[in-house]
């Protein structure tokens, strides 16, 4: 068989296979979609070990530390669970209070901590520009003196 004919047959075979595999298969298919939610569960107790049953819980998202994102109460075992919004990564704050006693716990969500530390006050563009200016100034000074020596 000619090489050209072999090539055409091979191409046709590949095309047929492609069409077969691309055709919808009408059967009793099953599709399972899944999502992974982060669920945080806390357990609050007094130093004596007594659960803080019915204690007030306030949850704060990292990007709004002043307004509770969620409020609720602990169950009889002092447990409280919630699913933080993973699109708001950082340090989530959970405050538990009851009858003049309370505590706060911090939970990192999304792999990055919040930015509660001191800000430099400069935008990233400003920092980059300042760095470029410093480098350019150094290079320029070096070039200036190297030119004068010639």
């Amino acid at each position: 068989m000619h090489t050209k004919a072999k090539f055409i047959i091979g191409l046709a075979t590949l095309l047929a296979l492609h069409l077969m595999l691309s055709m919808p298969i009408h059967a009793h298919g099953v599709r399972i979609h899944h999502t992974v939610d982060v669920v945080v569960e806390i357990t609050a107790a007094y130093d004596s070990g007594e659960p803080m049953a019915g204690a007030q819980v306030s949850v704060y998202a990292p990007d709004d530390p002043s307004t509770p994102w969620l409020t609720g109460v602990c169950d009889d075992e002092g447990r409280f669970s919630f699913a933080p919004d993973v699109s708001r990564p950082g340090t989530w704050t959970v405050r538990v209070r009851q009858a003049g006693h309370g505590d706060i716990v911090y939970i990192s969500v999304g792999g990055s901590s919040d930015t509660s530390g001191r800000a430099s006050g400069y935008a990233p563009l400003q920092i980059v520009l300042m760095a470029v200016c410093v480098v350019w100034g150094s290079v320029g000074t070096a070039l200036y003196f190297s030119r004068r020596r010639r």
């Binding site: 930015t115 509660s116 530390g117």
Partner: peptide, 9 residues
């Protein structure tokens, strides 16, 4: 009397 910004808290 001293206040701090701490991260982690």
């Amino acid at each position: 009397i001293t206040a701090y910004q701490t991260d982690p808290p």
